[in-house]
């Protein structure tokens, strides 16, 4: 039993990892088929993993209702909305007034998606605009050299990447240098430089570290050193 619970998963991970790794260097049909088959399996497994979330969610809300926790009435809303969506997607018959197939444009499922899911998700996201404005106002202080740099760069980007930046740039006087005409304030030029030089370079430095971490974690998983993903217990 210990073998099944502990060793076997590690052996599976090791064999699968090494096979998929070596496969990359071998140009042959077998290696392509191996990759293809593996990726298809993964797609199916991931599909099932998504269902796990639903089970847990329902469990959570059922429990809330049973224990009559504060605000449990809202859990009925969640469960009812879920049931409605499931009904719309899986019902074996047509809904009068809607298209016949449950995913098609004009179906009940799509109607629910378009008029409830889209507005709610989009609104939840757009609330960020208010928060970002207030955060900028409240927290964006030139407290230290770092904060000042962040602030200045952000301000240049904010003005420079919208039409008003172009207006300001074009309104400033010009001067000649190396036979070219330059504006004293040229946001397009500035933001372009900011993004392409310091920004890209710093991000590259960070990314190189991140890639190394990814390599490290892959290696740890393949060699069975990293086991957190399997969960604790025996």
């Amino acid at each position: 039993m210990i073998f099944l619970k502990r060793q076997l998963p590690i052996i599976i991970a090791f064999v699968a990892g090494i096979m998929m790794w070596i496969r990359y260097y071998i140009p042959s049909e077998v290696s392509t088929n191996l990759e293809d088959g593996y990726l298809e399996w993964v797609r199916i497994i991931v599909g099932f993993a998504a269902i796990l979330g639903i089970l847990s969610l329902l469990q959570h809300h059922m429990l809330k209702i049973r224990m009559k926790r504060p605000g449990f009435a809202f859990s009925y809303v969640t469960i009812a909305a879920f049931a409605l969506m499931m009904f719309a997607g899986f019902a074996p018959f047509n809904f009068p007034g809607f298209a016949e197939k449950n995913m098609e444009t004009g179906s009940l499922f799509n109607w629910l998606y378009e008029f409830t899911f889209i507005p709610m998700q989009a609104t939840m996201f757009s609330v960020l605009a208010f928060f970002i404005a207030s955060a900028a106002f409240r927290a964006f202080r030139a407290r230290s050299m770092e904060a000042t740099l962040l602030l200045v760069a952000a301000i240049i980007m904010m003005v420079g990447r919208v039409p008003i930046g172009d207006l300001i740039s074009n309104a400033t006087p010009t001067f000649m240098m190396f036979g070219n005409e330059y504006h004293f304030i040229d946001f397009e030029e500035w933001t372009g430089w900011l993004l392409n030089v310091p920004n890209a370079a710093a991000k590259r430095g960070i990314l190189l570290g991140v890639y190394l971490s990814q390599i490290a974690i892959s290696i740890r998983i393949i060699f069975g050193i990293e086991r957190t993903y399997m969960g604790g217990g025996d």
């Binding site: 998504a50 909305a81 409605l84 969506m85």
Partner: peptide, 15 residues
Amino acid sequence: HLYLGISVGYYVNIQ
């Protein structure tokens, strides 16, 4: 809570 239910229902269907 409505959003929660709808979103989960939507994802199940899509999956």
